[in-house]
Amino acid sequence: MSIRFHSTPSQRRNRYLLMRHGHSQANARRLIISTPARGLTAFGLSEQGEAQLEALLAEWRWPIPTRILHSDFLRTTETARRVAAHFGIALQPEPRLRERDFGDLEGLEDSHYEDVWTHDAIDPEHGEDGVESVASVAARMQGVIASLEQALRDETMLLVSHGDPLQIMLTALEGRLLTEHRGREALLPASITMLD
């Protein structure tokens, strides 16, 4: 079964920059770190991630954010903190921007992502190995934008999150089938995507 979310109207009240956290210690060790028990206090940015952010901020080419919301995992918090310090703006943790929960695969090698994505391509509601479904991720991620659109106007929001949730949200906002989220080009660490 495939689910298609209706894309958000192109005339949004706010502008949105979607940012994947910088290269992390979990990336360096090729581990799946997706639960608050591990992700909130450990596996922050790697040296490579710190260098990525330094380069990104030195050559910033996007609108300057007026607000920064971020997943409360350590790697996203550290990423958001660096951007916030650079521009002198406050941070707001947003748990709905957290990593996709990979259930029983927590702490295993990241090669297990491929198994999950194979199931995703068949059924966006699957929960194999206790993994959070694609449909659930899409709903919570889109919920962040929906609530911001309702509450605010004329802001430039930087949303700092994780690779899988961002790819799923972008797929949903484009109105594509959620089973196709891995068909998008992978978002690189410390990359920024501006919503049209």
Rank of each mutant, 00 (worst) to 15 (best):
T179I: 13
L108H: 12
G44Y: 02
G143V: 12
H21L: 04
T77H: 14
A58Y: 02
S34W: 05
E109S: 13
H119N: 10
L166W: 04
R15I: 08
L177I: 00
T77M: 10
L173Y: 10
D101G: 06
S133C: 09
L56W: 01
V131G: 05
R98C: 08
G183F: 11
H70M: 04
L195F: 09
R4F: 06
D120A: 11
V134Q: 01
A80E: 09
D110M: 04
A55K: 12
W62G: 02
L69G: 04
E47I: 10
H70Y: 07
L159C: 05
M157W: 15
N27K: 07
L178W: 03
S34N: 03
D154F: 09
Q167Y: 04
A135W: 01
I3E: 11
Q25V: 05
T118R: 12
T118N: 08
E109V: 02
W117I: 08
D164V: 13
R140G: 01
T193P: 12
W60P: 04
F102P: 04
L74M: 12
M141F: 14
R38N: 15
A135P: 01
R140D: 01
L40K: 14
M194A: 15
V137F: 09
L97G: 07
G130N: 08
F87Q: 02
D154V: 10
H21P: 07
E128R: 15
H70N: 05
P63C: 06
H126R: 12
R100G: 06
D72F: 00
E109K: 02
T118D: 15
A26T: 06
E180M: 03
Q167P: 01
H23W: 03
E106H: 07
A84V: 03
T41K: 14
S111G: 01
L170M: 15
A85V: 03
A146Y: 01
L170S: 08
